[in-house]
Design a binder for these strands. Structure first.
Lengths: 221, 221
DNA sequence: CTCGACTTTTGTGTATACACAAGGAATAAT
DNA sequence: ATTATTCCTTGTGTATACACAAAAGTCGAG
């Protein structure tokens, strides 16, 4: 089934997303090849794919490194994410599928319990599932894929979010509002709430970096 | 500068976009390697990139072929395109930059003259520039890139558009409406008009295929 | 004549080898 | 001592070779 290149691509992806390979890390093909016990060929293919999915940067003749976007760039990406999520929420509200709503409520509760239990990684997973349910609930598979892709791409930068005081509590409240709007079939409200929900993340990200040394992890704008 | 893989990737891209390599065409590495006078290695890299940009499909152990999405899939893609363009138009209206508006008017006129002259390829180019100006005018570089990428990806399917009677005339009128809304700073109007402008393309595409043998170029839904 | 198993061929996946450019270290010149 | 130049090391880009899976063609049996 899965080729060697696929495995390497996946492993590198998770390591980047989980922060083990922070932005700016150089990825040298011979080193990776030796580490995974394979030749450079599949390593190169894996890097090509990661480059395409936007997780690494592949400069010609100058090697590849984990993408290290400027602050402004990250904010732009959060803006687009906000719009994609807003569209998904609107389409969810348009359908207002009872099955979908029950799933949303289940993940919402899962978010609350994991948050109460201070289980950070479990909360991340529940939160991810909540948002993915909205993506899929849009009824547009292509839209869902795009949203999932960008969501993944932003994960390394969203990780710093919850350090912001009270953000988690507010985030949960926003989730509830979105579900309410979707259940009511209120397209405009669902869209607006979800857009704001994500946009705040981008703003908080900027605040966070402004507070704790901006240049530490991303290049200055 | 440009590596061999880059050149091959570009050439294949244009050939796919221009319809020389219609959806479903099998792309075999040895044949392409011989055709371009290179080894299989850079050919594979080029195919990987095209796969990532969504122009070809790369099934493991079963080769690559020009992506041949179902009708439903294409409609989904047009829906997402409509939303992206709507966001761009809204952000354009928010800024209402005079310089941007003059550029838009220039491309609008270019569209009209080329349409009047029946110069199809020139019209395509002018139309493309018009839309790209709106993307860039959003002020969000990442959004603009996403929009441009999807625009390119949809090009093979947009080509069949203008065969639909009167579509061209209506399209020009919609362009004018968008510019007017942007100039007036009317975000809601700009967004709505642009969304409808693109959505219609998706619908017309469905109509077109329903009329002239759906199975000819894309798989059935 | 048709269907099925075996062989052959074709094409992809991976490894190895070579070519060349970029960055750095060492040496020489000012 | 500083700077510039040259050489060397490192790493990427491409080519070739091998391994294996899938499809196509062939042959034989019913």
């Amino acid at each position: 089934m899965a080729s060697v290149a696929d495995n390497i691509s996946e492993r590198l992806e998770t390591e980047i997303v989980e922060g083990l390979l922070p932005p700016g890390t150089r990825l040298e093909e011979p080193a990776l090849a030796e580490r995974f016990g394979v030749s450079r060929t599949p390593v190169r293919e894996a890097l090509q794919r990661l480059s395409a999915s936007g997780l690494v940067e592949l400069k010609p003749r100058r090697g590849t490194q984990v993408l290290n976007p400027s602050i402004g760039r990250i904010v732009e990406m959060f803006e687009v994410m906000a719009e994609l999520e807003a569209v998904c929420a609107r389409l969810c509200a348009r359908r207002a599928d009872p099955d979908l709503i029950s799933k949303l409520k289940a993940w919402l509760m899962s978010c609350e319990t994991t948050a109460a239990a201070q289980d950070v990684s479990a909360y991340y997973e529940a939160n991810r599932q909540f948002h993915h349910t909205i993506y899929r609930g849009s009824g547009n598979g292509f839209l869902a894929e795009q949203a999932e892709s960008l969501h993944l791409r932003l994960t390394p930068f969203r990780r710093q979010q919850l350090r912001v005081p009270r953000r988690l509590r507010q985030s949960l409240a926003e989730h509830t509002q979105v579900v309410t709007a979707i259940e009511a079939g209120d397209e405009a409200a669902a869209e607006a709430v979800q857009r704001a929900h994500i946009l705040i993340q981008g703003e908080r990200f900027g605040d966070f970096l402004a507070q704790f040394g901006a240049g530490a992890r991303t290049t200055a704008d």
